[in-house]
Lab assay of single mutants.
Amino acid sequence: DEWTVEDKVLFEQAFSFHGKSFHRIQQMLPDKTIASLVKYYYSWKKTR
């Protein structure tokens, strides 16, 4: 599952609005599965 720079920026924006409500985040990133969002979240969180 490839994440473009745009995907990553959108994820951060969606996360700032919705927190860990992955269903709502998915509405902003409809091409990503919930599982993909959760997996990305945990790898992204480690870099914070």
Rank of each mutant, 00 (worst) to 15 (best):
E2W: 10
H18A: 02
V9K: 12
V9I: 14
H18V: 00
F22C: 01
Y40K: 10
V5C: 08
E12I: 11
P30F: 12
A14W: 05
F15G: 03
E6D: 09
L37H: 12
S43P: 02
Q26S: 02
L37N: 03
V38C: 05
Q13T: 01
V9Y: 07
K39W: 05
P30E: 07
T4R: 06
V38D: 06
R24E: 15
S16V: 10
I25H: 04
K32P: 03
K20T: 09
M28I: 11
I34Y: 08
M28W: 07
I25L: 10
V5L: 09
I34R: 10
K39Y: 12
I34L: 09
L37D: 09
S36A: 08
V38T: 11
L29K: 05
V9M: 07
L10S: 03
V9C: 01
Q26C: 12
T4Y: 11
K45T: 12
R48K: 09
H18I: 15
E2P: 13
T33K: 13
T33H: 02
V38H: 04
V5K: 14
A35F: 13
K39P: 01
W3F: 11
S16F: 05
K39D: 07
E2S: 09
Y40G: 00
Q13F: 06
W44S: 07
Y41W: 07
D7N: 02
K45Y: 15
Q27F: 04
R48A: 11
Y41C: 08
H23R: 09
K32S: 00
Y42S: 14
F17P: 08
W3I: 09
V9F: 08
D31C: 09
R24L: 07
Y42D: 15
F11D: 01
V38R: 13
Y42C: 13
T47R: 13
H18T: 10
P30A: 02
T33W: 04
V38I: 15
Y41H: 08
E12Q: 08
K20S: 10
I25A: 07
D7H: 13
L10H: 05
V38P: 00
F15T: 06
R24N: 07
L29I: 11
D31G: 14
K32N: 02
H23C: 05
Y42H: 11
S21K: 11
K46N: 09
P30C: 04
Q27T: 09
H23P: 10
E2A: 02
Y40P: 10
F15S: 06
I25E: 04
D7P: 09
A35T: 14
Q26M: 09
F17M: 07
L37Y: 07
I34G: 03
M28Y: 06
K32C: 02
F11G: 03
A14T: 06
E6L: 06
V9S: 13
S36W: 01
K32Y: 01
Q13L: 04
H23K: 15
S36H: 11
F11C: 11
H23T: 12
E12S: 02
Q26V: 04
S21E: 15
V9T: 14
T47G: 10
I25F: 01
F22T: 03
S21T: 00
I25P: 07
A35V: 07
Q26P: 00
D1E: 12
S43M: 07
Y42W: 14
H18S: 04
Q26A: 02
T47L: 09
D31K: 13
F17Q: 05
F15C: 15
K8Q: 09
G19I: 05
I25M: 04
K32M: 02
F11N: 04
F11W: 00
K45A: 10
Q26T: 01
I34H: 03
T4N: 11
Y40E: 10
I34W: 04
F11L: 00
F22M: 07
Y41A: 02
P30Q: 04
Y42V: 14
Q13E: 11
A14E: 02
K39R: 12
A14K: 10
I34E: 09
T47W: 07
K32I: 00
D31F: 03
K8P: 03
F17T: 15
K20N: 11
D31I: 03
D31H: 11
H18M: 01
V5Q: 12
P30M: 01
T4C: 05
H18L: 03
W3D: 03
V38G: 13
Q26R: 12
P30D: 06
F11A: 04
I25C: 01
Q13H: 12
P30V: 04
P30L: 00
Y41R: 05
K8V: 06
L10M: 15
I34Q: 03
E6V: 02
T33N: 08
W44T: 10
Q26E: 00
F17R: 14
K32T: 02
D7E: 06
F15V: 10
S36E: 14
D31Y: 14
D31P: 06
E2N: 15
F15R: 05
K8T: 08
D7T: 04
Q27S: 08
V5E: 15
I25W: 06
M28K: 04
E12A: 07
S36C: 14
K46V: 09
I34C: 01
H23S: 13
H18K: 01
W3L: 01
H23M: 15
F22W: 15
L10A: 10
D7I: 08
T4S: 12
K20E: 10
A14P: 01
R48V: 08
S43D: 14
Y41I: 06
K39Q: 03
A14G: 04
L10G: 06
T33P: 15
K45V: 09
K32H: 09
A35Q: 11
W44Q: 03
F17L: 12
K20A: 10
T47A: 05
H23L: 14
T33L: 04
P30H: 08
F11V: 02
T33A: 07
I25V: 03
H18E: 00
F17S: 15
T4V: 03
S21M: 10
T47S: 09
T33V: 02
L37W: 02
S21L: 06
R24G: 03
